[in-house]
Design a protein around this nucleic acid. Structure first.
Length: 418
DNA sequence: TCTGGGGTCCTGCTGCTT
DNA sequence: TCTGAAGCAGCAGGACCC
């Protein structure tokens, strides 16, 4: 679901294209969250619908009918509502998206085992091993589009090219519900006619820096000395953009992508300045992060606390623990330690977050017992909680400090295991 | 206009070790 | 014992992606 839409001055021609060597496919669902949500609300098909929520939230996705009014992904909800007041606003349904995504990825894997998911709604496929069985890359692209539509009831767009970067540009151009093939010998003219913002890795800031150099198209970048780009953008970005500007992208489609960090953050409904309340939110975030790590069978060693103030300035503080952990209690201890060390005197805080990095598979992590902790201590309790949540739902067991006092809750009260 | 939540990667700085 | 250089790890912040 690319947020940066662009158009070519001239669309790639409709004559049959030579797709020899174009073994990389980028498949991207069209307005995925909106299309998926409409499967549950068929009466809204053909009308403007915005997926998002909360008065401080942003647009997660919108139907093409809403996009015609200027609504776009990541736009603040307030602005989206003003642009398209007649739109129906629906909250996201992440379970539904995960289910559809799993089905789509299964379809991809029936074509080729070399599938690299980028997110729930898009993936790269290397189809070089499927050509003899299924036909040319463009033929395979058409088969995938038909299969996704028939099996999941949503449409997707496909880019077919010799490299990942160009395939991604092509699928963007094919939207919605189309396919674009970029033959190998057309790669350079194809990329060089694009605006600089079309390049992967060029966001607002980099675009500004490039415009300051007088560079507006990818061709401009290609014909700028590498030393100039490196001076303006840094070594990695400068080199990266120069390579892309000549259509060079040596990355291959990778099946396994190991996660490098796991975390959670939360924007409050209203800014908070009460340290007690903030510590409580940190506990919930720590528990959530730890539960996800345990579900993934991983532990983390470096804990990073993120704090965003009401003026949107953001700071991070990190602490590396003596040993890796997947315990919400240990993460919370570290988070509170870092938060308290900030010494904030009733500063108004908009968001807090915790993230664990330095991930190691749990079976390789040297998790040592803590002096004074019973042999079957918090780790066993955490696992018992995980099992209860898997069986009865995520809200069934919570730390006592996260339970909202309510006079009428006795029978359904979450059990405290802390 | 007023900015989510999940991430990755890069850069520059600092402090520790050799 | 002190000092400087080099290498490295950790940290903080920023930009970017979907």
């Amino acid at each position: 679901m690319s947020r940066r839409q662009f158009a070519l001055p001239e669309r790639v021609g409709s004559a049959p294209l030579d797709d020899t060597g174009c073994t990389v496919l980028h498949v991207d669902m069209d307005a995925f969250y909106a299309s998926a949500t409409l499967l549950r609300h068929p009466e809204l098909v053909g009308t403007p619908v915005i997926i998002g929520g909360g008065h401080r939230g942003v647009v997660l996705s919108a139907t093409y009918e809403a996009r015609r009014f200027g609504v776009a992904s990541a736009m603040p909800m307030g602005r989206a509502r003003r642009l398209c007041p007649q739109a129906t606003v629906l909250p996201p349904d992440h379970d539904l998206y995960a289910t559809i995504s799993a089905g789509v990825m299964e379809t991809f894997r029936s074509v080729t085992p070399v599938v690299e998911p980028l997110s729930l709604d898009e993936a790269f496929l290397d189809v070089s091993g499927a050509l003899r069985r299924l036909g040319s890359p463009a033929t395979i692209g058409r088969q995938i589009r038909d299969a996704v539509h028939d099996e999941q009831g949503i449409t997707c767009s496909v880019g077919v090219a010799p490299s990942k970067f160009v395939a991604k540009l092509a699928s963007n151009l094919a939207k919605p519900d189309g396919m674009v093939v970029v033959p190998r010998d057309e790669v350079v003219p194809f990329v060089q006619q694009l605006p600089v913002a079309a390049l992967w890795g060029v966001g607002d800031k980099t675009e500004e820096a490039l415009v300051r150099l007088g560079l507006r198209t990818v061709a401009d970048i290609a014909h700028t000395p590498l030393t100039t780009l490196v001076r303006a953008l840094g070594a990695a970005t400068g080199q990266h953009l120069h390579e892309l500007a000549w259509g060079r992208d040596p990355r291959t489609v990778e099946r396994e992508q190991r996660e490098k960090s796991v975390g959670s953050d939360e924007t409050f409904e209203a800014d908070l300045d009460d340290a007690v309340l903030i510590r409580r939110h940190l506990l919930a975030l720590s528990e959530r992060t730890a539960a996800r790590m345990r579900a993934a069978g991983t532990t983390g060693r470096t804990m990073t606390l993120k704090v965003r103030f009401s003026d949107f300035t953001t700071i991070t503080r990190a602490r590396t623990l003596r040993e890796p952990t997947d315990s919400g209690r240990a993460i919370h201890e570290a988070a509170v330690g870092l938060f308290d060390a900030l010494g904030l005197q009733r500063a108004r805080i908009r968001l807090v977050g915790v993230r664990m990095s330095g991930l190691t598979p749990a079976h390789e992590a040297p998790i040592q017992g803590v002096i004074g902790e019973p042999e079957h201590g918090w780790r066993d309790a955490d696992r018992a909680v995980d099992r209860a949540r898997a069986r009865f739902g995520t809200g069934v067991v919570r730390p006592a400090s996260l339970i909202q006092p309510s006079p009428s809750t006795t029978a359904q009260r979450p059990r405290d295991l802390s």
